[in-house]
């Protein structure tokens, strides 16, 4: 199937109940890129769509949804997904292909780049100048800005190629819906180029993680603890406050390196990126690699003995003092007001 108009193709990811937030952000971004160029936004999904998946994709701007199904795609394999993207590139000749900068998105786009010998830009936040040219007349030439050094620095680079390949940094844009969207045309397709070699590195089994309380990356409240907490046995007050606020505990890398808390609680460049309404960062200095993971919090309250700590100076609010006095006092204040 070939289309005459230029397309922007977005690889989206489905969760059991809905499309992933980062996918909706990537679609929102694709829309802004496509509109001025008169291009059409296509979404590509490998495997099943959640019940309202097609509706969510339409309302976020996808005009066409390509849904690739095959029993061989049941277990995730990056190479298999990449072969589906490469098939779609062959069929649509999109000017631009993007995906969320999730682990899957980065992995699959890297495979596509390697297969087609194209450049790839990871963690793009902005397209500074876009020449989304018609696929029949020439390459797309974008100048993009992307996060490097965990977001502490931005790199501007030329993204030349046909198609231009990139992944979209999380929370660089807020996802928005289009006014009165037309339902997307859903095209069910079968993989064309999928080979046995693409299935060698497929997931053999998935063990669901026993979720302990609120998921850090989705929590509305995160209570953070750093080296200032003082020891593995000193986290009770923070955990109690997080529980009291229906939130999750997040920690710095020093805390996980010292073995005080498990790595899945780590916030930062090599941990999780959090997006809570409020991050209460206690005894954390606010190194750039930590900041990389918490800068999307809507409000930051720092508790630190050092008024010059970057976490304090960059925060919205701060209490200067010993967290072992301040944190229990916050809990008792909450209790007191509840009576």
């Amino acid at each position: 199937m070939s289309t005459s108009a230029t397309t922007v193709l977005v690889l989206v990811e489905a969760e059991p109940e809905e499309m992933s937030t980062l996918s909706l952000e990537a679609l929102t971004f694709a829309r802004a890129l496509a509109e001025p160029a008169g291009a059409t936004v296509h979404a590509l999904v490998v495997g099943d769509l959640p019940a309202n998946g097609a509706g969510e994709l339409s309302s976020h701007g996808a005009q066409v949804v390509h849904q690739v199904s095959d029993p061989r795609l049941a277990a995730y394999s990056a190479a298999a997904w990449a072969s589906c993207v490469v098939d779609a590139i062959g069929a649509q000749s999109p000017a631009v292909v993007l995906a969320p900068a999730s682990p899957r998105g980065n992995e699959v786009i890297a495979h596509v780049a390697a297969r087609l010998d194209l450049r790839m830009a990871a963690n793009v936040t902005e397209v500074i100048s876009a020449q989304v040219q018609d696929a029949s007349t020439g390459d797309a030439a974008l100048v993009v800005r992307r996060q490097v050094m965990g977001g502490a620095v931005l790199e501007e680079l030329d993204l030349v190629g046909s198609p231009a390949l990139f992944t979209m940094a999380g929370h660089a844009v807020e996802h928005t819906t289009v006014e009165s969207p037309a339902p997307a045309q859903v095209i069910a397709t079968a993989p064309i180029s999928l080979s046995a070699a693409d299935l060698v590195a497929a997931v053999r089994r998935t063990v669901p993680v026993a979720s302990s309380g609120t998921d850090l990356t989705r929590a509305r409240v995160v209570v953070g603890g750093g080296r200032g907490v003082g020891g593995a046995d000193q986290f009770d007050e923070l955990i109690a406050l997080a529980g009291r606020l229906g939130g999750a505990l997040g920690v710095s890398r020093v805390v996980t390196s010292l073995g005080w808390r498990p790595h899945h609680e780590q916030v930062g460049q090599t941990g999780s990126r959090i997006t809570p309404d409020v991050y209460l960062a206690c005894g954390i200095s606010g190194a750039i690699q930590h900041w990389a993971g918490c800068s999307s919090a809507k409000t930051i309250i720092a508790v630190n003995t050092d008024p010059e700590a970057p976490m304090v100076t960059k925060a919205n609010y701060a209490v200067v003092g010993d967290l072992h006095q301040v944190v229990p006092a916050i809990s008792s204040e909450l209790d007191a007001r509840h009576h």
């Binding site: 606020l245 309404d277 409020v278 919205n316 609010y317 209490v319 200067v320 003092g321 006092a329 909450l334």
Partner: peptide
Amino acid sequence: VQILGTDKDTGAAAAAVVDVLHTIGVV
């Protein structure tokens, strides 16, 4: 940054933090 208090007066600082949490709407 708006300094809400210090541990010299922990009670007042904690009250100011809880006020902020109310304003944000998380409590």
